[in-house]
Amino acid sequence: MKTINKLVYVFFLLTVFLINAQPSQPSQPPAGGVGGSGTGAPASPIDMYVYALGIIAVMFIAFFNKKYTGKKA
């Protein structure tokens, strides 16, 4: 049970870091610039797969937890 608690703490810690990883965008662009249309945020191809990668990570954790728990007994 202690291992599960540690994994939960690490998960929440990493979640907080990921949520706060990028500073918020300014609400208005600086005055005087002509700039293009859009948010100006860089496109990241991994954004499309965040949910799928999260599900795969949970499945890997469950698989390896089951695999190594079975060897201890």
Rank of each mutant, 00 (worst) to 15 (best):
A52H: 08
A41G: 01
A31E: 08
T15F: 06
T39D: 09
T3P: 04
P42R: 02
K6A: 14
Q22L: 06
P23Y: 12
S44H: 09
G33H: 06
V10G: 00
S27H: 04
L14Y: 02
L53P: 01
V10P: 00
V58E: 07
S24H: 09
F17N: 04
A73I: 15
D47E: 12
P29R: 10
L14Q: 05
G70K: 15
V16Q: 07
N5V: 14
I55Q: 09
K66P: 01
Y9H: 07
I46V: 12
K67S: 05
Y68I: 02
P30F: 06
K72V: 03
K67F: 12
P42I: 01
K72C: 02
L13N: 06
P26V: 00
G40P: 00
S27F: 01
I55G: 04
T39Q: 06
T39R: 03
P23F: 07
K72T: 04
A52T: 06
M1D: 10
V10T: 10
V16E: 10
P42G: 00
F60M: 15
P42Y: 00
F63M: 06
A31Q: 11
Q25I: 08
A31Y: 05
F12C: 12
P29C: 05
N65E: 14
Q28L: 08
V58A: 15
Q22R: 07
V58S: 10
K6N: 15
A57R: 03
Y51R: 08
V16D: 07
L13A: 15
G36L: 13
K66I: 13
A52L: 09
G36K: 10
G70F: 04
M59D: 09
M59P: 01
S44N: 15
G38L: 02
Q22S: 12
